[in-house]
Simulated assay, not measured.
Amino acid sequence: MNKSKISLICKILIALLGVLTVILIIKYLPNILAVTVSLDKFRNYIISLGSFGSVAFISFQILQTIIAPIPGEVIQVAGGYIYGTTLGVIFSTIGLLVGAVIAFYFTRFIGASFIERLMTKKNAKWMVDIMKSKKFSAILFIIFLIPGLPKDFLIYIAGLTPIKALKFFQILLLSRIPWLFVSASIGSNLHCGNYISTIIISIISLVSFVLGLLYKDKLINKLSCNKNLKESFKINQFNSVN
């Protein structure tokens, strides 16, 4: 089978998966949001599924990565709350990676024009600047690493660039896994009643989040070859708040 046929099959499969995902989201999103508002409620739901619980949990993480209807931290904390730190990280990582693969190849194969139209909006200009940077990989790593910055849509953006898929997924995993451990650890300690540990980890996470917000512009601007990146990134953050 030649490369063109393989590419066509991949495009068809991704398109079908995308259609199926949209249908399921439209039908079940209210139920999904209702289940995830409480750690105990989410845990009881996953456990009630028995041996399919881990598959359902991973599916929640995939959905969050692709569409982001709920904050990723909620799912990741819940992973630790349900399965403990180690399994919580493993399941969250699998879901994150599968979701990222779907989003990345959706853009690269069939969704480029759709993503490009979204990026023509004024508050998406900073993403265009990032794509044009000679240090795109380093900037991507920093944005993925710093808590609180918009991450999931950048997976789609990466699909528009020449970055090699393997390199991109390495960057994604290296930058996200530390915080998956933090989130799962918080959930695990909450479930075990280790509130002091939970408070300490949460304070460290909060400090990291604040420092990230304070210094993100300097870091990104320093690594970028585009002088307007810092300003456009600030504009986007202002618009997203308002």
Rank of each mutant, 00 (worst) to 15 (best):
T86D: 06
G159K: 00
V55C: 02
L97H: 01
L49M: 15
P162I: 14
I62F: 12
Y195R: 07
G50M: 12
K41D: 15
N44T: 03
V22S: 08
I26M: 08
I177C: 11
L118F: 15
V77R: 00
S205L: 08
I90Q: 05
I110P: 14
T65L: 01
S59Q: 05
K132P: 13
L118A: 08
T36N: 06
V37P: 00
L229A: 07
I46M: 15
K227D: 14
F57A: 06
L160N: 04
C10P: 00
L223E: 11
F106P: 04
S188H: 12
G193R: 11
K227M: 12
L214H: 08
I94P: 02
L174H: 11
F109T: 02
I47S: 03
V182Q: 02
Q64F: 02
I62S: 05
S232Y: 07
L213F: 09
A15C: 15
L87E: 11
S133N: 07
T120C: 01
N242R: 10
F57C: 05
K218T: 15
I115A: 04
S183W: 06
P69M: 09
L33C: 05
F114I: 14
N31P: 03
V19C: 10
I115G: 00
F42N: 04
S59K: 03
V210R: 12
F60A: 08
S133V: 03
F144S: 01
E231R: 08
Y105K: 00
I102L: 14
R108G: 10
K5G: 05
F141R: 01
K122R: 11
I90P: 06
S59F: 06
W126V: 11
I200Q: 14
L206H: 02
V37S: 13
S175A: 15
V37A: 03
S183C: 13
P147N: 04
S133Q: 04
T120D: 14
I196L: 10
Y83Q: 02
I186E: 01
A103M: 04
